[in-house]
């Protein structure tokens, strides 16, 4: 994987402290990270390591208390206002009163796109996540994996170059998860988007990423950044190759070094 030149996310000395009734909690501390265009970066670590918080800072859902962060050279707020990213949550978070098609058009309606443009985008994005034919179904009529695919389609619909995914497959069983991982890689290759992906699964992180950011808790910080040497073309059985296992071992070592396996 050749390092791309243009920077999408750049964080310097980023920190975030939550004020709680039990006193301040250091959710993120001194994070320095640069993410280039077209990268697939995974954030891995135990709960409380700040991986989700970091994603939420990028998305302007949380305000950092220290340091700086820029998205496409803008503040997170400006980036959000210019709809620079699509966000996929842990749950599909579809609106139950809207059909799949109307769920995907939701961001487009808010942006004020014409009906025709909405139709065209929905058709294209549903194709991308293999949900063609399910336009008029309601969310409850779909399986969990299909619902999460619909929510990815919704995040892709307004053509942002950056996709933020917060444990999107965490609630799904492993077979569905394998399948969705494959589809996500395929989608990433076809669209050349930049993807930030939060997970707590080592195989998932290694399988998907060009770079793996290992994080550790109390305070939430980056302990290791691992460049993947795997090729861009990745069949599922790449996970049995020595190369894959070597990277997985490095991730595990990184987690151990960050005391993630201690309580």
């Amino acid at each position: 994987m050749t390092k791309s030149t243009s920077t999408v996310v750049s964080a310097r000395g980023l920190g975030l402290t939550f004020e709680t009734s039990d006193g301040p909690v250091r959710a993120l501390s001194d994070v320095d990270l640069t993410i280039g265009k077209g990268e697939f970066v995974s954030f891995i670590g135990p709960s409380g390591c700040g991986k989700t918080t970091f994603l939420r800072v990028i998305a302007d859902l949380e305000k950092p208390t220290d340091g700086t962060i820029e998205i496409n050279g803008m503040t997170p707020e400006k980036a959000r206002e210019s709809r620079a990213y699509g966000y996929v949550f842990q749950a599909a978070a579809l609106f139950p009163w809207r059909t799949i098609e109307r769920n995907v058009t939701l961001p487009l309606e808010i942006m004020g796109l014409s009906r025709a443009a909405q139709k065209e985008r929905v058709k294209r994005t549903l194709e991308l996540v293999n949900l063609t034919g399910f336009e008029n179904k309601y969310p409850w009529q779909l399986s969990g994996g299909m619902q999460q695919r619909a929510s990815i389609a919704r995040a892709l619909a307004f053509d942002a170059d950056l996709l933020l995914m917060d444990e999107p497959f965490g609630a799904l069983d492993e077979i569905v998860r394998d399948h969705l991982n494959e589809q996500l890689l395929e989608l990433w290759r076809r669209t050349n988007k930049t993807i930030c992906f939060v997970t707590h699964s080592i195989p998932e992180a290694v399988y998907l990423s060009t770079r793996i950011v290992v994080m550790s808790p109390r305070p939430g910080r980056v302990t290791d950044v691992i460049e993947s040497t795997l090729p861009k073309e990745r069949p599922l059985d790449i996970r049995e190759t020595p190369e894959f296992l070597a990277i997985a071992a490095r991730v595990r070592d990184g987690l151990r070094a960050g005391h993630s396996y201690e309580d």
Binding site: Y85, G86, Y87, F89, Q90, A93, I110, M111
Partner: peptide, 9 residues
């Protein structure tokens, strides 16, 4: 989550 979603839009 739904409110956050609207915020991101």
């Amino acid at each position: 989550m739904h409110l956050d979603l609207m915020h991101t839009y």
